[in-house]
Computed example of a mutant assay.
Amino acid sequence: MNIILLGYMGSGKSTLGRKLATALEYPFIDLDDYIEEKEQQPISEIFKTKGEIYFRKKEHEYLKALLKTSTKVVLALGGGTPCYANNMTLIQEQPNTTSFYLKASIKELVLRLMHERAKRPILSRIETEEDLTEFIGKHLFERTSFYNEADVVIDVNQTTEIAILDQVMSHLV
């Protein structure tokens, strides 16, 4: 079974994905890392030199290829992946695939992301907590309908990683 983790940046997709993959003895793939490896440049550079349309096209192609060739993988999507190119439909149509939306509140995401802004190009120019709250709020408003198409929604607010992992595992039995 393929396991797809989706949600906003900072929701814990990569962290949970690695732990889940270890527990299941599945390979773990972070789609953003995979794209950077295949394109041989950071996503920020792809956006800068080739633009978002190019990136979203490649993101869709790589997602499609991974879903087509994988039978047992834990795949963490980029925060925007579900929102473009009918990617959620593509995921839903895959046999033996379960998608999980790791749902975090705006407040929780601000707490998690405020000190990571330098590592995340899209957030690097945001200076205040108030501006970050507004930015995340707008993004979540645009993306939540896509995220809610996941097979399972897991609330990750103020919850331990072990509890979240247990919740995911309980849906796989």
Rank of each mutant, 00 (worst) to 15 (best):
L5N: 00
L5C: 01
G7L: 02
Y8C: 02
Y8T: 02
S11V: 04
L16Y: 01
G17P: 03
R18P: 00
L24M: 02
L24N: 00
L24I: 03
F28D: 02
Y34C: 08
I35Q: 01
I35V: 14
E37D: 10
E37G: 09
K38W: 04
K38A: 10
E39C: 11
Q40T: 10
P42S: 14
I43L: 11
S44A: 14
E45Q: 15
E45V: 15
I46C: 10
F47N: 08
K48L: 12
G51Y: 06
Y54D: 06
E59N: 04
E59T: 06
E61S: 11
Y62E: 12
Y62G: 07
L63K: 01
L63I: 04
L67M: 10
T69A: 11
S70R: 06
K72Y: 15
V73E: 09
V74N: 01
L75Y: 02
G78E: 05
G79C: 03
A85L: 10
L90A: 03
I91R: 00
Q92P: 01
S99F: 02
F100V: 03
Y101M: 06
Y101C: 00
I106P: 04
I106Y: 04
K107N: 13
L111W: 11
R112A: 05
L113K: 01
M114E: 13
H115S: 10
R120P: 05
L123H: 10
T128Y: 07
E130N: 10
E130K: 13
I136N: 01
G137P: 03
H139A: 11
H139S: 13
E142V: 12
T144S: 13
F146I: 06
N148R: 14
E149R: 13
A150F: 05
D151P: 07
V152F: 12
V152M: 09
V152D: 12
I162M: 15
D166H: 14
Q167H: 14
V168I: 15
V168T: 12
